[in-house]
Design a protein around this nucleic acid. Structure first.
Length: 312
DNA sequence: AAGACGGGGTT
DNA sequence: AACCCAGTCTT
């Protein structure tokens, strides 16, 4: 075993002892739970009249898209398709237009497929276990846990980018979590998560909110943090992150080309011809063809007469 | 384990 | 111009 692994194991053992002694609960969980009620945002998918379906729709929309952009689309979506059964009947073109510019439109396709699966296999009601949710299209480990915690109020370890950052800083002393979710992070989270359903669900919501509002990636508001005094990262002098995340290129990528084509088709009343696609991405015919082929393969675009349109 | 996959607000 | 965002799926 190399020194780094040895140190990691020692750190986890130390954390496990702290958890056993109830110190993590006293220093981290309890203060964050106390902080939440006065700080939480008033988001519509958290309202007392929320439904599991509304929670799921919010979680899928929030996969890589910020809250501010999701909120208006979520409201319109739930007004139009208040249940899985309603969405299951919707034409794909309507679904993609309602998704608008949230990005990653395959999520909209998967959400519609999820609605149909819920109708077919679960009688139209969302299942309540992580394993059943995980088996539905577009629902991965995070979203399954989020629905269990936020919609059903039961214990589920919700490990999104916010929670990973809070735990990396407060317990790990690191500025940012690893690039990819590690077993170490999962075992650390499992040790921290309260055992009781109601407390665990409240913690899920509160720790995510802390990461979103206070323990932010770029410029954390440590002065407003309820656990600043026991934060391992602060104690270490807030050292900058060691590994810089690789930023994704955007301008000139296939993804941008796909987006331009989708924008044209969303805004078109009927099918569009080759000319409209050329105008959408004029300078690289090869890339345009590759993007269109990908969209057709993904089921985001369909041939319509002599041209192309959103699928029925 | 790595790469593909949108789009817009913030710094 | 970079960076960031309540991830998932495929290879």
């Amino acid at each position: 075993m190399v020194a780094g692994e040895r140190a990691g194991v020692d750190a986890r053992l130390a954390e496990a002892r702290l958890a056993e002694a109830g110190l993590v609960d006293a220093r981290l969980v309890a203060p964050v739970l106390a902080w939440y009620p006065g700080a939480a945002r008033d988001l519509p998918w958290r309202a007392s009249d929320r439904t599991p379906w509304g929670v799921l729709v919010s979680e899928v929309m929030l996969q890589q898209t910020p809250v501010a952009r999701v909120e208006p689309v979520w409201r319109a979506w739930l007004d139009r398709w208040p249940t899985p059964a309603a969405l299951a009947e919707a034409p794909t073109a309507d679904v993609l237009r309602a998704w608008g510019t949230l990005g990653y439109p395959r999520r909209a396709l998967r959400l519609a497929a999820c609605a149909r699966a819920v109708v077919e296999h679960h009688g139209g009601a969302l299942p309540t276990t992580e394993a059943e949710l995980r088996a539905l299209p577009g629902i991965g480990a995070y979203t399954a846990a989020a629905v269990v915690a936020f919609a059903h109020g039961r214990r589920a370890v919700v490990l999104d980018t916010n929670v990973r950052r809070v735990l990396a800083r407060t317990l790990g002393g690191q500025g940012l979590p690893p690039a990819h979710l590690t077993r170490g992070e999962q075992s650390r989270a499992d040790a921290v998560w309260p055992a009781d359903d109601a407390r665990a669900a409240a913690w899920s919501q509160a720790v995510m909110e802390l990461g979103a509002l206070v323990c932010t990636a770029r410029a954390p508001r440590c002065a407003a943090c309820p656990v600043a005094s026991s934060c391992a990262w602060r104690a270490a002098g807030s050292p900058p992150p060691t590994t810089a995340p690789r930023t994704q290129a955007w301008t000139g990528t296939d993804r941008q080309a796909r987006g331009r084509i989708m924008a044209v088709l969303r805004d078109a009343v009927g099918p569009v011809g080759e000319g409209a696609l050329t105008a959408a991405w004029p300078h690289d015919a090869e890339q345009r063809a590759r993007a269109l082929a990908g969209l057709l393969a993904d089921g985001l675009v369909a041939r319509a007469g002599d041209g192309y349109g959103l699928p029925e």
